[in-house]
Nucleic acid binder design. Structure first.
Lengths: 186, 186
DNA sequence: GACAGAAAACCGTCCAGACGGTATGTTTTT
DNA sequence: AAAAACATACCGTCTGGACGGTTTTCTGTC
């Protein structure tokens, strides 16, 4: 008999809120803390309400994965469009996306993706598909050893940031960024 | 009244077996599958027996972490001892340890460590300590941009291997290895 | 070396709470 | 009026862990 029932219904906003909460919980308190109860409560929705949008937990995780990969696709495509040079175009977009100074805003989203990927074996398969697709699309322009090395380095830095052991200072970070961008053109 | 009670008691073997099972489960079926029931059953011990060695779940995870980091310490130290050149010594040991061809034997151990690290926020703090300690010890010899870049690249490749999206072929892998080792000396 | 006692290494059972999910109702939107 | 968007209540199972019992191993003493 609470008044929550009477509030305006905005399914899209609720859905986004639920996904955002799930992402935040996963990153801050670990994937084990992402329970239907915890998510629904933190999102200000009843569990029934949550289960209306996502019929089960797996679909919630899949929804999070879809949301993140769609964002990632969009960001990468945008960056590639404004890059006039074909060679290493994908690698540069990759670098620009994941090599963030200390950007808390967008950067966290990809961290969430990594956490979800590693903790949920089911999502690893889906990631593999995503990865293969992008790899095939950009073969020829981004398959050089240097480009591959650059992307690996970005992943490594990304991982260190995620684990909070990143020790590289701002100046060195900038130098590294230049180095990696140069490598994408070789 | 089963005969399991009567078998020979070998605490160390049981302890190792428990940790091995926990590691395997975490890697293959995700960290969520690492329950006291599942681990004890797969290890051939009763849950009571498991809880005798590890009084609670947290201590089990900590035990796994300790086991892995001790191994890692040992492996790194061994490789560093046989390296005559001081500059980049740690980085080369790091590369040799984590840059494995397709080695399933030891390589999986570090994968387990990553999975545990990412899924358990508590272990991230412990990892941070470990990392800082090694960083301080090898500052001066392994702080160059190239060495740092090389280590990042190894991490990236390691992550891709873990996620099963490693696409680099054997020949390119060998070339990359040489490149990274060269970079450690700059 | 024998033997008693203490300690360690297990096993089996039970429980309180958490978790994912169902079923059904109520309100709002279409 | 129908459907979508919620809420509330409830259930079966799983999970971490407590507890007491049983068997083996260790330890000191003679």
């Amino acid at each position: 008999m609470s008044k929550a029932h009477h509030r305006k219904k905005r399914p899209e906003a609720v859905r986004r809120q639920v996904l955002a909460v799930a992402a935040r919980l996963s990153l801050e308190k670990g994937p084990a803390s992402v329970t239907l109860d915890a998510v629904s409560q933190a999102a200000g929705v009843s569990k029934g309400g949550l289960l209306h949008h996502f019929p089960n937990k797996l679909s919630l995780l899949d929804g999070l994965f879809d949301d993140l990969t769609q964002d990632l696709d969009r960001v990468l495509a945008e960056r590639m469009q404004v890059d006039p040079e074909p060679k290493g175009r994908f690698t540069r977009a990759y670098i620009a996306t994941f090599f963030q100074p200390e950007g808390l805003e967008d950067g966290d989203r990809w961290k969430v993706l990594t956490v979800a990927l590693i903790s949920e074996p089911h999502l690893r398969d889906r990631w593999r598909e995503w990865f293969d697709r992008h790899l095939v699309e950009n073969i020829g322009t981004d398959s050089s050893l240097d480009a591959t090395l650059a992307r690996y380095a970005v992943d490594g830095l990304w991982l260190d940031d995620l684990l909070g052991v990143s020790v590289i200072d701002t100046a060195m970070r900038a130098t590294l960024l230049k180095r990696l961008l140069d490598m994408s053109r070789l």
